[in-house]
Simulated scan of single mutants.
Amino acid sequence: MQDYSNTKIFYNLQCCRGIAAVMVLMAHANLMVDKQMFSGAFIIGWSGVDFFFILSGFIIYYINFKYAGKRNELKKYLSKRLIRVYPIYWLYTTAFLILNYLLIKFAGKGIINWISLDFMGILRSYLLYPTNIVKSEMPIIPVAWTLSFEIIFYIIFGVYILSNKKIFQLIVGIWMLFVALNFFKVIDVTQSPLLSTLCNAKNIEFIYGCVIAHLSLKNKISRNRSIGISVLLVGMILLAISWINEMNQCRYFPKMDSLNFGIPYSLIIYGLISLETYNPNNKIKNSLVFLGDASYSIYLMHYISIVILYVIFKRIMHNHYGVFVIITTVLTAAGCICYSWIEMPLLKTIRRYSKKQNTPVIVH
């Protein structure tokens, strides 16, 4: 049985990270260009968010599990996570704010209409403070509503480092209790964006990731190829069933993405870890790994870009399928370029500055 304790990168998961980012991009393109196109099949690509949440729980636990009770590691942990999320997010947010201002100035109309662009609205967006999704309020970069969940999970996991595993388990247990109470309408938190986010059932997916990471670290994930393929296939079949049911609005119980999509994605992640191999000469896998590296930039820049490109292309093309393909291809490539030319140089600059200041910042 392989020892995962020194594994730095799970290439299979990185490949899927890129695929999930493109799924979300295609979902928004399908929705904005023509939601009837492809019978709305690609719209369900929003479930890529569920994959990201599970993967995030896996990565955080896997990398930081050894720091339980080591309070002096908290600063390094938070700096790693926050530097990975905020700088590039602030850059894209500022760029879109400037673009919106220019459109108002020269075209008479902006594109950001899902949040009030007053001081508090802008501040909340920059801080990733939860917005009221129930009332269709989103951050300046709309897809960044998911990052509010990430920040909350980072903070809660910080308790693991400050205390110990038992206290962390207790806090997670209480957290999941409130998630359940909210899901079954025992409590009503809809008026509070913070509590609505904190008690959202999607938070369960972070715990799925932590459980899978724990199994990996304890060498309890089977390396038997047949078992790995079987688990992967079961996950893919369940994902297909959930996908089709969501398309047809066939629900046999209340909508709960952490069950309908969280379980299939968890099984897929388990299977991919079980089958983890890497051949540096495999060009297809190398390309998918790079796509995974670029997933954050693809994710952040695509939504508003679709809004702009659709306005342009619908005037010169009447074929919705063609517009969809062009937008998806262009923005996937643009996200990869932004990663290579903006995101990575920015992170490298932060690394160099941190080394000069003797601050141990590691960006994963």
Rank of each mutant, 00 (worst) to 15 (best):
143 V>I: 14
221 I>A: 01
220 K>V: 00
223 R>F: 07
257 D>I: 01
194 L>T: 07
268 I>C: 12
219 N>G: 04
223 R>D: 13
142 P>M: 07
151 I>E: 10
139 P>D: 10
216 S>P: 01
245 N>V: 01
190 T>V: 08
142 P>D: 03
231 V>P: 02
203 N>D: 11
254 P>F: 01
275 L>H: 00
165 K>S: 08
167 I>R: 14
274 S>F: 00
141 I>R: 06
170 L>F: 15
149 F>R: 01
211 V>M: 14
267 L>S: 03
177 L>T: 15
139 P>W: 09
243 W>G: 04
150 E>C: 06
198 L>D: 04
261 F>D: 06
256 M>H: 13
147 L>G: 08
195 L>G: 10
240 A>H: 03
260 N>P: 04
203 N>S: 11
238 L>F: 15
249 Q>T: 10
178 F>S: 05
150 E>D: 15
228 G>C: 04
206 F>H: 10
263 I>D: 13
235 G>L: 04
244 I>K: 14
221 I>L: 07
157 F>I: 02
173 G>L: 14
224 N>T: 04
244 I>R: 11
194 L>H: 08
236 M>V: 14
187 I>V: 15
168 F>E: 09
254 P>R: 01
150 E>S: 06
274 S>C: 01
257 D>L: 05
165 K>Q: 11
180 A>G: 11
150 E>L: 07
227 I>W: 01
212 I>L: 06
171 I>M: 15
216 S>N: 00
150 E>G: 05
237 I>Q: 09
267 L>A: 02
188 D>C: 10
158 G>K: 08
161 I>W: 04
276 E>K: 00
147 L>E: 09
256 M>A: 12
227 I>Q: 02
219 N>A: 10
148 S>F: 05
173 G>K: 07
162 L>M: 15
201 A>C: 04
195 L>Q: 10
230 S>Q: 02
145 W>L: 04
203 N>R: 08
263 I>A: 11
144 A>G: 08
194 L>A: 10
166 K>H: 13
219 N>Y: 03
139 P>A: 09
218 K>A: 02
276 E>T: 00
179 V>P: 12
255 K>S: 02
211 V>N: 05
236 M>R: 03
191 Q>Y: 13
152 I>V: 13
145 W>K: 02
171 I>F: 13
154 Y>V: 02
172 V>E: 03
190 T>Q: 14
153 F>R: 03
225 R>M: 09
203 N>Y: 07
249 Q>I: 05
271 G>T: 00
260 N>D: 15
257 D>F: 04
